[in-house]
Design a protein around this nucleic acid. Sequence first.
DNA 1: AGCGTGATTGTTGGA
DNA 2: TCCAACAATCACGCT
Length: 161
Amino acid sequence: MKTAKGKGPARKDTKEALKPVDDRKLGKRKADQSSQRRAAGKQKKGQKDPNKPKRPPSAFFVFLEEFRQTFKKENPNVKAVSAVGKAGGQKWKSMSQAEKAPYEAKAAKRKAEYEKLINAYNKKQDNSADDESEKSNSEIHDDEEGGGEEEEEDDEEDDDL
DNA sequence: AGCGTGATTGTTGGA
DNA sequence: TCCAACAATCACGCT
């Protein structure tokens, strides 16, 4: 199953259909977020791999990065990250899929790079037995042309909503 | 002095 | 298949 790249986990389709509202918070996330930073800041018990690539930012985060700058410009007095999160989240939902399309496309790129990083990371893990140096790069062919960056496929489906 | 937290949604990974 | 945790940010507060 390809987990439907654009649709995401089946849970969304099922649950969201039943609960179109953003009740996804489940009330557990709050507590989780607390430990979230702890784990991230202090890393998990055995996750002491500084080379391990972090998860790619979702389209929302990509949009949020830009939104943060705009938000700060509009509200230089507001320094609360939560404010940006709320405003960003609200606007994000207000945006149409077409608007989110470019962000999703960028997020897709991040994900692609993430997979590549993970691949290299996995290779590294294998080589880390001897030495985590870069010598094993011979396996990794990084013939990635930074200049020859092809544009995203403009495959936006205009579904009227 | 230093790190945890708060808030957003999405995505990935593990069970 | 589904749940849970984590991705950035940034100033403030508590230990």
